[in-house]
Amino acid sequence: MKRPITPGLAAAALALVLATGSAQSASCDRPLFLTFDTGHMGVAPLVAEVLARQQVKATFFLANEKTLNDGRSLDAQWAPWWKARAAEGHLFGSHTFDHVYWRADRSDGSFDIRPTFGPQADRTVRMEAAAYCTELQRSATRFTEMTGQRMAPLFRAPGGKTSPALLAAAGQCGWQHVPWSPAGFLGDELSSEKFPNAALLQKALRDIRPGDILLAHLGIWSRQDPWAPAVLEPLLIGLKQRGHCFATLAEHLAYREAVRKGSITP
């Protein structure tokens, strides 16, 4: 005769399932590191919903980018969104405040840079190494203002464009650069006509390997068929089915020591 399933037994069974799942996550030997750079923020609410539903922790790189409503991604409207993500346990790094692209090194140790936003937007200007550090720090300071937490000492240069001199300058003020893996380029900034969502999903599921750092954005202006609504959740589900788990860069071998040593002081 079968024993009836009492509320106590059901709760115990659920606890066992959750504990088993946690143990499997902790022992996962096929980790992936999902990262998001800021963008027009149009898909940011959806991204947050999907990450919560799939129980995936990500690393976000913050710049003060123009949003769909003519605001900025780090303005007062978005402060509660960032605070909620920080409370959920995601990790955060700098993407430079004005989304500053490195263009060239100068012989005097400074750099030619081209901001996408801010008072010098779309102009190539000279920036001293110390000023580049200040530019990275501006995002960290704003993050602390919005969330009450400190930013990790990690940054991603816009477009991934750097030089050994730029990386050395950033390193002198405590910042470590984070590129992405070749297979981890998820293609959300490519033309949707040439690279439809179904093809991007198929390619990612085929090519991504354990240890890869994945790159997506919180909204891309140029893509007509947005990537996140169609691809993000199927991608996470598909990668999990292939035995992968997800972690922030605080658990990545190349970055965990920098994160452990301490966050950037605002």
Rank of each mutant, 00 (worst) to 15 (best):
S22L: 14
I208R: 03
Q137D: 07
Q202D: 14
Y255D: 02
P153D: 08
A168R: 10
V178P: 06
L166Y: 02
Q120K: 14
K261M: 11
A12S: 06
A79V: 12
V100D: 06
A11Q: 13
L214V: 08
Q55C: 03
A140S: 07
F185L: 11
Q55K: 15
V259M: 01
Q149I: 01
R260I: 07
F36Q: 00
L136G: 11
M151T: 03
A258I: 04
P158A: 00
V50K: 06
W180S: 08
H217S: 05
K203I: 06
Q172W: 04
A228T: 13
T144H: 14
H40S: 05
P45K: 08
T38L: 14
R106T: 13
P210L: 09
A131N: 00
A63D: 08
F60K: 03
L218E: 04
A76Y: 02
S192N: 05
L68H: 09
F92S: 05
S27R: 12
A11M: 11
A228G: 02
T20L: 14
P7T: 04
H252L: 07
A199D: 14
R123M: 13
T141S: 12
M127T: 04
A13T: 10
W180Y: 14
S94Y: 11
L235W: 04
L249W: 03
T144V: 06
P31C: 13
L190K: 09
D105E: 11
C173S: 07
R156Q: 02
L51H: 01
P196M: 09
D188R: 08
L253R: 10
A26L: 03
S27A: 15
G118E: 07
T141N: 09
G243H: 04
I5Y: 01
P153S: 12
L218V: 08
A199L: 13
H95A: 11
L201F: 09
E233Y: 00
L136Y: 01
F33M: 11
T35I: 04
L205N: 04
E145Q: 15
F60N: 08
T20G: 12
P266R: 10
L32F: 05
A152M: 06
D98K: 01
S110E: 09
R209E: 15
G262Y: 01
G148P: 10
K194A: 13
T20K: 06
D225H: 05
R150C: 04
S263D: 10
W175Y: 14
F61N: 04
A52F: 00
E65F: 03
K83D: 09
A199S: 09
R256T: 07
Q120E: 13
Y101N: 11
G238D: 00
P179S: 15
S22A: 12
L62A: 03
Q172L: 08
R223K: 09
H99E: 14
I113S: 00
A204M: 07
P119K: 07
F92L: 07
F60E: 00
M1G: 15
Q202M: 10
G21C: 12
S25I: 03
R103Q: 15
D70A: 15
G243P: 03
E233G: 08
S94L: 12
R260G: 01
K161A: 13
R150W: 02
